[in-house]
Amino acid sequence: MAGALTTSKASNNSTYAGLGNLLMLPSWLVIGFFLVLPVGMMLIYSFLTKEFRGGIIWEFSLAAYDQFFFDRGLFGDDPARIEWTYIKIFWRSIWQAGVATFFCLLIGFPTAWFIATRTGNSRSIWLFLITIPYWVNLLIRTISMKFLIRDTGPLNEFLISTGIISDPIHIINTNFAVQLGLFYSYLPFMVLPIYASVERYNFALSEAAADLYASRITTLRQIILPTVKPGIIAGCILVFVPSLGAFLAPDLLGGAKTFMIGSLIEEQFKGNAGNWPFGAAVSMILLSMVLIVLTYYARQQSKSGER
C-alpha cells in the first residue's frame, strides 16, 4: 500500500514520470516482442486463408474455425454437422493432463511435505535432488522413458526375470505411457510451489488442532490443506497447463490413439502438408480455454483475499 502511494506521488513529478517510463521500456519490449507480437500473429493467422504448401494467403477466412467445429463432408458442400474429431482430441488432452496432474499431486504433496519438514542442510540437498533430472533435456528424458518401459526394456525384463510376469506388460503407446511421461516431465512443478507453501506453514496450527481434539486426518483436511491451498493450486496449474499442450510425451510414448492437442498443432506447422491457419486456430482455442481456467482461479483467489 505504502509502495503504491509513493509511486503515484513520484509520477506526479514530471522528471520522475519520464524516468519511470524509460525504466519500464525493457519490460514493455520483452512483453511486446515475446508475448503480444507472436500471440497477435497467431490470432491474425487463424483468420486467414491457407496456402497449400504451408504458409498463408492474406485473405480473411473463418475456414480454420469452421474446420475445427463443423464437418461439411469431403467436398465441403454437405450440410454442416458437428465435427467430433478435434473435440475428442481436446477432451483426451484434458483427461490425460488431468490424470497426470492428479498423480503429480498424489506424489508431489507428500514429497514436498517431507522436504519442507527436514532441517536446514538436508532440505537443500533434497531440493537439489528433485531438480537434478531437469538439467537434462526433456526430449532425452522422454526417450529414456520410452526405452525403460518398452516391451523389451529393463522394466519388463526385470519383471520377467523375477518371475512376476511371463509376458511383457504392454505399456508403450498406451494412454498410461503418456500419463507416465507427463507425470515425470512436470512433477517438480508440483513439488516446488507446494514446498514453498508448506515451508511457511505454522506447525503450531497442527498442535492447536490436536489440542482441540482433532485427529491427524481431520487436521490434514481442515487445517493443513486449506492453509497450503495456494501452493497446491499453483502446482496444479503449473502441471496441468503445459501437460495440456505437451507434444513430446504423446508423440514419443503414445500412438495414434493417444493423439493430443500439442501434436495436432505441431502437425499443422511442420512440413508442406501443414495448415497454418488451422494450427493457429487450434492454438487460440487452447489458449482461451487456459485463460478461462486461470481467470476463474484468479477470481477465487481475490475473493478469499477480500474475506
Partner: peptide, 10 residues
Amino acid sequence: NTVFQQYALF
C-alpha cells in the same frame, strides 16, 4: 486445552 504463545489461530 492450550492458549498458545502466538495464539495459533486458524
